[in-house]
């Protein structure tokens, strides 16, 4: 009996090795909100596969269900129909294997930046030593440029700084998938550019499969390997997919000067305008 179980384990992990070409496999995903006037179908049979170490961004009009999709992947929003398989496991609820960076930084304002990151790190690396955890927190906070503001209360930090902590918190947990829900939507354009650089710099080192919701065409081209364009809701689906073929690591200047940049941009804008 015991042996059989072990065999089963081996087989499963073997399967994993062969089949984990995709980090995230979403199939026939449907989300229905019941309303007094009947069911409101937000997403209808949506399919999407995301490869290992891929950065995809999802773009679409407001209310097309982008955020619904992301919260379902995060496990914060129940699924009506279909499946989401992340890292070979069908997701059932939220968990630290999927890190989320929310639109509002969602830091706990009464804690310091350090404590905000430590809260999650303690949860994920509870087995490690205190020194290890301390190192992890400090490493990521300095990665996002907060070595001098580590012990400031979150409420004393600017929006941009708070979102930096949000980025550090998400990466420090070493998730398998990183979910970004319009993380820079509330920032001014200067800060937004800065934070995009911070994000891509950390990402270049960690290469965590990332899915980012955005409204910003330039942001999606600069950051993503593929841009998923969603049709307008209700019954939203994947409308079009654009492969962005810039080499990594990318520099903003190189991207902007690349001859293909405007071709990509036009493609996206055309889709959004029709």
């Amino acid at each position: 009996m015991e042996g059989l179980k072990e065999l089963e384990e081996v087989r499963r992990s073997d399967n994993g090795l062969f089949e984990d070409k995709y980090m995230l496999d979403i199939s026939q995903l449907t989300k229905i909100y019941p309303t007094p006037k009947g069911d409101y179908v937000v997403l209808d049979d949506l399919d999407l596969k995301v490869k290992h170490e891929e950065f995809i961004s999802i773009i679409g009009h407001s209310g097309c269900g982008k955020s619904t999709l992301l919260t379902m992947i995060a496990g914060l929003n129940p699924i009506s129909r279909g499946t989401i398989v992340a890292n070979n496991q069908t997701i059932k609820g939220p968990g630290p294997d999927r890190g989320v960076i929310f639109q509002s930084p969602s830091l706990l304002p009464w804690m310091t930046a350090y404590d905000n990151v430590m809260l999650g790190v303690k949860q994920v690396f509870g087995h490690g030593t205190k020194k290890d955890r301390d190192d992890i927190v400090k490493y990521y906070l300095s990665k996002v440029g907060l070595e001098d503001a580590m012990y400031k209360k979150a409420k004393e930090l600017s929006q941009g700084m708070q979102q930096r902590v949000g980025i550090a918190r998400a990466f420090a947990l070493k998730p398998k998938v990183l979910l970004l829900d319009e993380p820079f939507g509330m920032l001014d354009s200067l800060t937004r550019g800065e934070l995009q650089d911070v994000l891509i710099e950390v990402w270049n080192q960690e290469k965590i499969t990332a899915i980012m919701i955005t409204h910003d065409v330039d942001e999606s081209i600069f950051l993503a390997d593929r841009v998923i364009m969603m049709t307008s809701g209700p019954r939203a689906k994947v409308g079009d997919i654009l492969e962005i073929d810039f080499e990594r690591p990318r520099l903003r200047k190189d991207v902007l000067e690349h001859p293909d940049y405007y071709k990509y941009r036009e493609h996206l804008i055309n889709f959004l305008e029709h």
Partner: peptide
């Protein structure tokens, strides 16, 4: 709700959820 979502994403236990997030807020 943002704080509760943080607690959910981090998979905090009941004790931590109450003492680190719910009570202070």
């Amino acid at each position: 709700k943002d704080y509760i979502n943080v607690a959910k994403v981090l998979n905090l236990g009941v004790g931590q959820k109450v003492f680190k997030i719910i009570l202070p807020s």
